[in-house]
Simulated assay, not measured.
Amino acid sequence: MLHKSTTGLIVVDIQGKLATLVHNSDALISQTKKLIIGAHQLSLPILWLEQNPTKLGPTTPCLAECLTPNQVIEKYSFDATGTELFNHAVQQSGIKQWLICGIEAHICVYQTAIGLLQVGHQVEIVADCVSSRSEFNKQLALNKLLGLGAHLTSVEMCLFELVADCKAPEFKAILQLIK
C-alpha cells in the first residue's frame, strides 16, 4: 500500500516537441497534471526531471506551472540515477516508494525505474501517465518493469490509496480533481 509519509512522485521528461508526439499525448498531459496537483494536495515530495533541455526543450508549460520553479533536475543519462543531483534529492527526501510518470516509457521511465529498484526503492508506474511514441514500446516497457519488480497503478487508484479515508482532510479536493 502507498502511504503519504513514504511516497513521492517523479515526473520524467514531459518536455518539448516530444511531449506532443507520444501516443495519446493529450490524455498523458491531462492525467499527469491531475497527478501533480494531487501530489501537492497530499504534500508528497516531487522530483521533476528534464532530459537535455537545451536540445529537447522545457517541460510542457501546463505541467511546469504546477511544479516548483527552479527545482527541475537537468539530466543527460537516460537513467536519472546516473545524475548526482537526482540521487541526492532521492536520499534527502527519505522516501522509499516512488510513483513514476513521464516519457518515454521504454527509455527514461524504464531506465530510471530500474535504477531505483536496483538500489532498493519500491516503484509504481502510473500507467495512465506514461507514454512512448508507440503504444507497443509503452506496453513492452510496462511488461518488463512488472517482471523486474515494479508495480502499476493509475492516477485515480494511487491518489485514493494515498487518501485512504473519506474523512481525510484531502478527500474532497482529490475527489473534485478526479471527477
Rank of each mutant, 00 (worst) to 15 (best):
residue 28 L to N: 10
residue 151 H to F: 08
residue 117 L to I: 09
residue 101 C to I: 02
residue 84 E to K: 14
residue 80 A to V: 02
residue 114 I to E: 00
residue 87 N to C: 14
residue 6 T to Y: 04
residue 104 E to R: 08
residue 146 L to S: 13
residue 141 A to G: 04
residue 73 I to S: 08
residue 47 L to F: 04
residue 157 M to V: 03
residue 178 I to K: 13
residue 161 E to S: 11
residue 44 L to M: 09
residue 36 I to L: 10
residue 11 V to L: 05
residue 144 K to G: 00
residue 48 W to Y: 08
residue 29 I to H: 04
residue 19 A to T: 04
residue 158 C to I: 06
residue 135 E to R: 14
residue 80 A to C: 03
residue 56 L to W: 10
residue 18 L to K: 11
residue 65 E to K: 14
residue 17 K to W: 03
residue 173 A to E: 12
residue 97 Q to E: 05
residue 4 K to V: 13
residue 16 G to P: 01
residue 55 K to E: 10
residue 92 Q to H: 13
residue 39 A to I: 06
residue 101 C to H: 02
residue 39 A to E: 05
residue 139 Q to W: 01
residue 46 I to C: 04
residue 58 P to Y: 08
residue 38 G to W: 06
residue 70 N to M: 02
residue 136 F to C: 01
residue 133 R to W: 06
residue 112 T to Y: 00
residue 97 Q to W: 01
residue 73 I to Q: 12
residue 121 H to P: 00
residue 41 Q to E: 14
residue 102 G to L: 08
residue 132 S to F: 00
residue 124 E to H: 10
residue 117 L to K: 09
residue 27 A to C: 11
residue 133 R to T: 13
residue 63 L to I: 12
residue 125 I to C: 11
residue 89 A to N: 07
residue 76 Y to C: 06
residue 133 R to S: 10
residue 85 L to N: 15
residue 108 C to P: 02
residue 133 R to P: 07
residue 116 L to P: 01
residue 79 D to P: 00
residue 123 V to K: 10
residue 141 A to W: 03
residue 37 I to R: 14
residue 113 A to H: 04
residue 143 N to H: 06
residue 78 F to A: 09
residue 165 D to Q: 13
residue 62 C to Y: 02
residue 100 I to A: 05
residue 1 M to R: 15
residue 105 A to S: 15
residue 114 I to T: 02
residue 17 K to R: 14
residue 67 L to A: 09
residue 177 L to D: 11
residue 80 A to M: 03
residue 18 L to F: 07
residue 5 S to C: 02
residue 47 L to D: 03
residue 3 H to I: 07
residue 113 A to N: 04
residue 51 Q to R: 07
residue 4 K to F: 02
residue 135 E to L: 13
residue 35 L to Q: 06
residue 72 V to I: 09
residue 92 Q to P: 00
residue 18 L to I: 13
residue 134 S to I: 11
residue 170 E to W: 07
residue 163 V to K: 05
residue 21 L to T: 05
residue 97 Q to C: 04
residue 119 V to P: 00
residue 123 V to L: 05
residue 44 L to Q: 09
residue 96 K to H: 14
residue 107 I to W: 00
residue 54 T to L: 13
residue 40 H to R: 15
residue 67 L to C: 09
residue 152 L to W: 07
residue 141 A to Q: 06
residue 174 I to N: 10
residue 25 S to H: 14
residue 149 G to F: 01
residue 95 I to K: 07
residue 87 N to V: 10
residue 150 A to F: 06
residue 53 P to W: 03
residue 23 H to M: 10
